[in-house]
Design a protein around this nucleic acid. Structure first.
Lengths: 203, 203
DNA sequence: GTGAAGTTATGACGATCGTCATAATCGAAA
DNA sequence: TTTCGATTATGACGATCGTCATAACTTCAC
């Protein structure tokens, strides 16, 4: 059994990142928030905070792609869209609009670490790797939508564009809902996206 | 004439926020980046970093709403959409996909300031005010799109939803483009949004 | 030229940060 | 039970952070 502590830290980091962003999530708060031993950080994450963030991004990605892939395969693209949006709506409402998407946080911020970057210049390789991981998560979600649309008869190029629209607009809307402390934008966008998808499927 | 230093600081803060996010943007870096005197911070911004961020959000909002409102009024909703997306595309490409949207950064992060929050709990009022400002900027952009759609015959409720879709999806796509270091998602989303709008206008 | 008000220069303060080194503790094979 | 590796406890290090106090420097009306 791989350490339970490690998993709690990763999940806690993902949660904190979704509420505060990458840079405002300190390792000390992760251990406080998850009631895990501080001394274990360097043991479970030899590459430090960078590694913890990386794992949190992958974790958050799977947390969504799991249910999404399942629903899409059993009930199709439109159900997938509804699931995707419903998942984010839950996250927003359960946290009283405090939590958003940790992957989006990585895509918006720049990870800076004063301890590792002695020369003042941010570690470009580290930042690029984080962006690659975030991009990979987005690509994975898009792939699921893309496959569903293809299976239901949408042409490849169109399916790619529609998948991009669904993921991007949902991510943007989640952030807007957080700013507005309201799920109204998500409901509006869901409605329009359903129209778009069903019109594309009808052809 | 209101100090030129102050304006440079606000613009510099907005730029840094769009590249690094709110919390990774330090006042010392704003000063370095804009070649402004550090001693002037507390003079021009008596409420400190909080005030600087606030001004940067409003500044960034106007920077977009100005051109957007102009183009929308002279050439209509679809031209407005194209302008909105082209603006962000410029920001992305000119910065080699380093800069995104500073307002989105505020909507995604939580502003934490160790100096002001002695008790460990983040200043909730400050954070709420920042979210209100970000929400206001998004609402302003939506209002411009909404008005254009209304003028071109779209029903109120539909116009509201479409405006939300345009703003939210563009914001989300900008972040995705930053993660992917590519403008492809923006192009894909633009294409689909144009289809949606022109179909809504045709009715 | 003399003030006064508007700016800027500079260094300090307390706090948090990520990381590391060292020592203590635990768990299970021998 | 002893021993050894995995895990945790704890405190220190150097760095940056936002803010503030104080003093110096401008600018310009009078």
């Amino acid at each position: 059994m791989t350490s339970d502590t490690r998993a709690k830290m990763v999940a806690g980091a993902a949660d904190l990142m979704s509420r505060r962003g990458v840079n405002a999530t300190s390792m000390r708060e992760v251990v406080r928030h998850t009631a895990t031993p501080r001394g274990s950080i360097s043991h479970h994450f030899p590459r430090g905070k960078q590694q913890l963030i990386e794992d949190a991004v992958v974790f958050a990605g799977r947390q969504v792609s799991g249910p999404l892939e399942h629903l899409v395969q059993s009930r199709g693209a439109i159900a997938g869209l509804r699931t995707f949006i419903a998942l984010w709506r839950q996250t927003l409402e359960k946290s009283k609009f405090q939590a958003g998407c940790p992957v989006l946080a990585v895509a918006v911020e720049q990870y800076v670490n004063d301890a590792t970057e002695k020369d003042g210049a941010p570690d470009e390789a580290a930042q690029q790797h984080l962006l690659d991981l975030a991009d990979g998560v987005f690509a994975d979600w898009q792939r699921i939508m893309f496959t569903a649309l293809r299976r239901e008869g949408v042409a490849p190029a169109r399916a790619r564009r529609l998948a991009a629209l669904v993921i991007a607009s949902t991510e943007g809307t989640v952030a807007m809902c957080r700013a507005a402390r309201s799920a109204q934008p998500l409901e509006d966008v869901r409605q329009e996206l359903e129209l778009v998808l069903s019109s594309a499927l009808a052809k």
